[in-house]
Design a binder for these strands. Sequence first.
DNA 1: GGTAATGTAAACAGATCTGTCTACTTTTGT
DNA 2: ACAAAAGTAGACAGATCTGTTTACATTACC
Lengths: 203, 203
Amino acid sequence: MSNSAPAFRDLRFEDLETLKPRERILKTAITLFNRYGVNTIGIDQIIEESNVSKRTFYNYYPSKNDLILSYLEFWDEFRFDNLAKHLASLKVHDPQTEILTVFDALKDWIGQNDFHGCTFTRGLSDFTSEDTSLLLDKVNLHFKKAADFIGERLAQMVKPAKAKALLLELLSLIVGAMVVAHATGDKSIATLNKAIARSLLEA
Amino acid sequence: MSNSAPAFRDLRFEDLETLKPRERILKTAITLFNRYGVNTIGIDQIIEESNVSKRTFYNYYPSKNDLILSYLEFWDEFRFDNLAKHLASLKVHDPQTEILTVFDALKDWIGQNDFHGCTFTRGLSDFTSEDTSLLLDKVNLHFKKAADFIGERLAQMVKPAKAKALLLELLSLIVGAMVVAHATGDKSIATLNKAIARSLLEA
DNA sequence: GGTAATGTAAACAGATCTGTCTACTTTTGT
DNA sequence: ACAAAAGTAGACAGATCTGTTTACATTACC
């Protein structure tokens, strides 16, 4: 696992044939991994659907795990960039408002066409073997970044003991929304949970 | 996929060598599937760790999917039996109390040694191919049973429009607790979310 | 005690998967 | 224009996985 991810761009909406091989491979992986999971999708299928030769594939991604790593990096980057965009459009910047903005970003994430559950929640279960420990690290890092973002703002609002409970509750509202949206197809849960989060923060 | 599950017993705490081959296989599968997932665990590994010959394995479980099905049935049965046990010990039986009891059962489930996330939440992602559609059906049936249990009681408490939102919120609190407990290792989330559920139901 | 059921051990077939390698073609930069 | 870089096509090795089969041993039961 050695390659760095390509500069961020929204590969999801880019035409396959206009992309260079490397990004064409990644875009195909994003689609297939999201839909069927990293374990059931083989290299051969990604190679075929991205119209690339096997040699070219292994030139850019020396192993399948490298590709999965880039896939995780893509979504991590995408999600935090999206959050940053929402934050930038805020008029006020108090901690509570910023925390609640996470639920607006969440709404985008859930609402994307072809949403098949949270990549990172899934990763908690997918990367349990020794040769995927680096991938599990990436997953945990993503959760840590999210927890830190919220935790830092809670620290400005409430006492530490209260902050600890609130952090767990907020994380639960976030991932709960994703799983419920995935399982039921009902996307209103993001808005419902934002309201619950607000009432918790104002209590 | 043809075999029926063995009569319910808590195989999780039963000694391997005291069990008959069929249940020895299932117990091994429960342990390994929970920890590493159904996709990364092979038949050969289950056969070896359950001290059974390949022939015997295929005698009881004609295919790997049969075993996974029994595994799902085991947990479905276990969870609803556990809920029933909690319900039986209630003094009062109003709808709200019964709904909140789900969080007590959830606490047991999360608190089990070797908890590695929700079997059924994971199944939503694991069973995405054509030859696992029956397994996905089982997963969805489990969620439907849970949703029905809560939904029937909500119908006695609030108006339909309110019930729809409450159902999603409660399901989110349940699965959110499981994922957060899995990701962080902090099991207090079950109790925290029960309190949130209570305040939602009393609003 | 003898027969049928149930078990062990392990070779084998066939499919699939990751990753390597060879031979050839196209693109690109200067 | 021409050399280097990047690409295609695809055979192949080696590992792994599911499921079958053969040959033999043990257990259970009437």
